[in-house]
Computed example of a mutant assay.
Amino acid sequence: MNRFDDAQEKTSLARGLARVLLGTGAILMVPAVAMRFTREVNWSPFDFVVAGILLAGIGSLYVLLTRKLRTVQQRRAIGGGLLLTLLLVWAELAVGLFGSPIAGS
């Protein structure tokens, strides 16, 4: 691998991580805006921090794990596993699906 390939790979990684951060911010804007219009959504700053860490962490992990994969099937498998992990952790934090000590209830 030459210097050009290294620079190109770092740029690609930086772009992927920047997309993850922008996407995380966009997703977190939904409850932030909803809180302005309804009392049904009532997130604390801690809720935003936890959700941001969870979304950015899973997204960053996807970018890092799939950068070397060439096939769409492999990327979909990694993405599906990470999405399932995200949904299970989110559900546990929200309603205590499994009754673990980190449950929100």
Rank of each mutant, 00 (worst) to 15 (best):
E40H: 02
F48K: 09
S100N: 15
T24F: 05
A103F: 03
W43C: 06
D47R: 07
F98N: 01
T24M: 13
D47K: 08
E9L: 12
G81F: 07
G25C: 02
V72C: 05
A103L: 04
S100A: 14
S60C: 05
Y62E: 15
L17T: 10
E9D: 13
T38N: 02
L69F: 10
D47N: 14
Q74Y: 11
L22N: 06
A91F: 13
I78L: 10
S60P: 05
I53C: 11
F37G: 00
L17I: 15
L93D: 04
A26M: 12
S44R: 05
L22F: 08
A77V: 09
A56Q: 07
P31N: 01
W43G: 05
A103W: 00
G96H: 11
G16P: 11
G104Q: 10
V30L: 14
Q73Y: 03
G81Q: 05
L97Q: 07
Q73V: 07
G16H: 13
G23H: 06
R15E: 08
W90I: 01
V41T: 06
R19P: 00
A51D: 09
S12L: 07
R67S: 03
L28I: 00
L28D: 07
L13D: 09
M29L: 14
S100H: 05
G79W: 11
R39D: 11
A7D: 14
L13H: 14
L69E: 08
V41W: 00
A32H: 01
L54H: 13
I27Y: 00
N42M: 02
A91L: 08
L21S: 12
I102F: 07
Q74A: 15
V95S: 12
G80P: 03
V33L: 14
